[in-house]
C-alpha cells in the first residue's frame, strides 16, 4: 500500500505532491481502491482500539469497591431538617433569648429610671434636700451619709427611707437597700407607699436563690393592690 495515501490524508504532502496524488487517484482504480480501504481500515482500527480499551477499563472500573459517601435521599434531608428544628425549638423553649430574664429587665429599668429624685423646697429637711441633690448628681455615698444623719433625727421619714434605700440600690448594696425598703413598706399611714415596689425590684436585682420568686410575688401584690409602682410592675412582669 502506498505511503502517499496516508501522507495525503494527514496533510503531509506538498501542494505539488497533493496535486499529483489527486491526478493519480482519478487515473488509477487500484490506488482509489487502496485509498478507500485505507480510510475504512483507519476507522475500523480506531473503533477496535477504543472497544478494546473500553473493555479493559470497564472490567477494572466495575470491580472498584471504594466506599462512596452515601448520597442523602430526600427523606434523609427531611429527617435532618426536622432534627435541627427540634433542637432550635428546645433552645427557645428552655432559654428563649427574646424573652429577657426578669433580673435583666430589672437592671434595665434601674439604668433608665430612678436617676433623679424630686427636690422638696422648704426649711424642713434641708439636709435631706442636700442628700437628694447628691443622689441626683450620682454621688450616692454622700447621699447615704446625709440621709443617715437625717434619719437619725427622723427615723420614720418615708422620703428619707426612700432616698437612702435607692442610694444603696444604685451602689448595688442590695441587703442595705432591702432593709430600708422593708421599713418603708411597713409604714401604713402613707397615702402613696412605693416601698413594696422597691422591695420587689431589689429582690430581682439581687437575684440570689429564691429572690426572683419573692420579687415577682411582691410585684404581683403591688399590681393586685393598686399600690404605687403598679404601672412599672406591670411592665416588668410582661
Amino acid at each position: 500500500m502506498e505511503e502517499r495515501i496516508e501522507h495525503y490524508f494527514d496533510a503531509e504532502l506538498t501542494k505539488a505532491e497533493k496535486r499529483q496524488f489527486e491526478e493519480d487517484l482519478s487515473a488509477n482504480p487500484d490506488l482509489a481502491d487502496d485509498a478507500a480501504f485505507y480510510l475504512q481500515s483507519r476507522i475500523a482500527a480506531k473503533q477496535a482500539a477504543h472497544e478494546t480499551l473500553l473493555e479493559e477499563k470497564h472490567q477494572r472500573w466495575s470491580g472498584l469497591s471504594e466506599e462512596q459517601p452515601k448520597r442523602l435521599s430526600r427523606g434523609d434531608w427531611m429527617s435532618i431538617a426536622a432534627a435541627i428544628l427540634l433542637v432550635i425549638a428546645a433552645v427557645f423553649y428552655f432559654n428563649n433569648p427574646f424573652k429577657r430574664d426578669l433580673s435583666v429587665r430589672a437592671e434595665s429599668y434601674l439604668a433608665n429610671n430612678l436617676k433623679e429624685l424630686p427636690v422638696h423646697l422648704g426649711d424642713e429637711g434641708q439636709r435631706l434636700q442636700g442628700a437628694i441633690q447628691a443622689y441626683n448628681q450620682q454621688q450616692y455615698e454622700p447621699a447615704i451619709t446625709l440621709t443617715a444623719i437625717y434619719l437619725s433625727q427622723h427615723p420614720a421619714d418615708a422620703e428619707a427611707l426612700r432616698v437612702i434605700g435607692l442610694a444603696h440600690l444604685q451602689k448595688k448594696e442590695y441587703d442595705q437597700a432591702l432593709d430600708y425598703f422593708q421599713q418603708l413598706s411597713a409604714q401604713t399611714r402613707l397615702y402613696s407607699n412605693p416601698g413594696k415596689y422597691y422591695e420587689g425590684l431589689t429582690y430581682l436585682l439581687r437575684n440570689q436563690e429564691g429572690d426572683k420568686v419573692q420579687g415577682r410575688k411582691l410585684l404581683e401584690e403591688v399590681i393586685a393592690n393598686n399600690l404605687e409602682g403598679k404601672q412599672d410592675a406591670m411592665k416588668l412582669l410582661e
Partner: peptide
C-alpha cells in the same frame, strides 16, 4: 471532504465495499 469534489463520490462508493464491522 479533503478530496476534490469530483472524486468524493467515487471514494465513498469504494468505501462502501469495505464494511467497518467486518474489518474490526
Amino acid at each position: 471532504e479533503l478530496l476534490p469534489d469530483e472524486q468524493q463520490d467515487t471514494i465513498r462508493q469504494l468505501c462502501a465495499k469495505y464494511e467497518v464491522a467486518i474489518l474490526k
